[in-house]
Design a protein around this nucleic acid. Structure first.
Lengths: 219, 219
DNA sequence: GACGGTAACCTTACGGCGTAAGAGCGAGCA
DNA sequence: TGCTCGCTCTTACGCCGTAAGGTTACCGTC
């Protein structure tokens, strides 16, 4: 019946399909069975390409890392590092499920290693001593993950519209019990220009400023 | 047979028992059935005290927040905020499972609200304008979550011993492909004094310094 | 062209999961 | 005494990840 044999599966195709499902519907409905259905195969066939569901998740996280811009050494560390962070933010907003996965993956894939190596290389080339570069990488990663964890768990998706949601939340709060939350909601978050996504950039500026000062101090 | 009726279950007892299980064995083996067994009851009985497993997880996260030190207003914002962050770190290391849960909880409990209100209050009392206080809270939370996500996913638990693990990992890396990772592993991470946990404090110093500068600029 | 090996895929089955539906039971009050 | 009601238990359903082993279709070799 099958005049043409179907394209054989590969680990890459399986991982890519899993990412598609997670992007569209979230991580919860991604099961070996649903994934198999999506690639036109039975569940157990997937185990010829991934060792386990955990291995699949590792592959998915690494695929996400592969999308993040790699900073180039020797082109102005601050700009390159800023580019890496904003790119990382965009990628993680495109793959929201990945943020919650980062903390449970203990075996980094090749793209993950490459990403960290590139940041280190960029800083070292700019004159950061080994130790300071290590501090900087940890701080930059913490900035990226820390803001993204917050952004991903916001009860809304897009910037505009945030005001109304915040307003509704603020109305449910007792001003006597949470005076400062109510204040900030009323006088800041619900104002027209507000967008939580700007916080990311504010924190990034602060961080890069601090790193520049530390670099200057050591030179 | 039961001469004395057994102590009735409450939401609080259920949540506390769930936290105990997660602390001991992690989040994966925490099921409604295992939790029920742990409190001496059948699984479905739990649903009279929590609405669903999701509600249970919300309760667990809020219980964790309740353990974090609340900064006191009017006692020197930097010290109080530093205390809040280090306390938060200790609490989250005690309840490692909570870090991965933070990003999926969209309905904050009372302790969570109280925690945020207290930080805001501390900053406002120290003279931070509303907008700057909002930036500061986001940055402080990002710092806490960002470093903890990294600490929790380290392939080892305690500070000493990290060197050997890092050494073994570094040996598996190709120096031609990841030159800077190998360099940092050999010249920094595997050295006797190194402890990744110090990174948290380094980043906190940098952040508080930056916030102080922003505060001074606005006054 | 027959043959054996092998990689890709499928079938079946197991124990565990969250929870819907409703029965049973004991305490407190009328 | 009998009723109500809140808590607990029983049963059942449709999912899940994956172990074990059978089936199929292509390959190089003679």
């Amino acid at each position: 019946m099958p005049a043409r044999t179907r394209e054989p599966l590969t680990r890459e195709r399986v991982v890519r399909a899993a990412v598609e499902i997670a992007d569209r519907d979230g991580l919860a409905p991604l099961s070996m069975r649903s994934l198999a259905r999506h690639v036109g195969v039975e569940a157990m066939s997937l185990y010829h390409h991934v060792a386990s569901k955990d291995d699949l998740l590792d592959g998915m996280v690494d695929a996400v890392f592969a999308e993040i811009h790699l900073p180039r050494a020797g082109e102005g560390w601050a700009g390159q590092v800023r580019l890496r962070s904003t790119s990382g933010r965009e990628v993680l907003l495109r793959h929201r499920w990945a943020v919650g996965l980062m903390d449970s993956r203990t075996s980094p894939g090749p793209a993950t290693l490459r990403a960290h190596d590139a940041v280190l290389g960029c800083l070292r080339a700019a004159g950061f001593p080994v130790e300071l570069a290590a501090h900087a990488v940890a701080a930059l990663d913490a900035h990226l993950y820390g803001y993204l964890v917050q952004e991903v768990s916001l009860p809304f998706r897009d910037g505009p519209g945030a005001g109304e949601v915040a307003e509704r939340i603020a109305e449910g709060l007792d001003p006597a019990e949470f005076p400062h939350l109510v204040e900030i909601a009323r006088e800041h978050v619900t104002r027209p220009g507000y967008d939580f996504r700007d916080e990311f950039g504010w924190g990034l500026d602060l961080l890069l400023e601090g790193l520049a000062r530390r670099l200057a101090a050591v030179r």
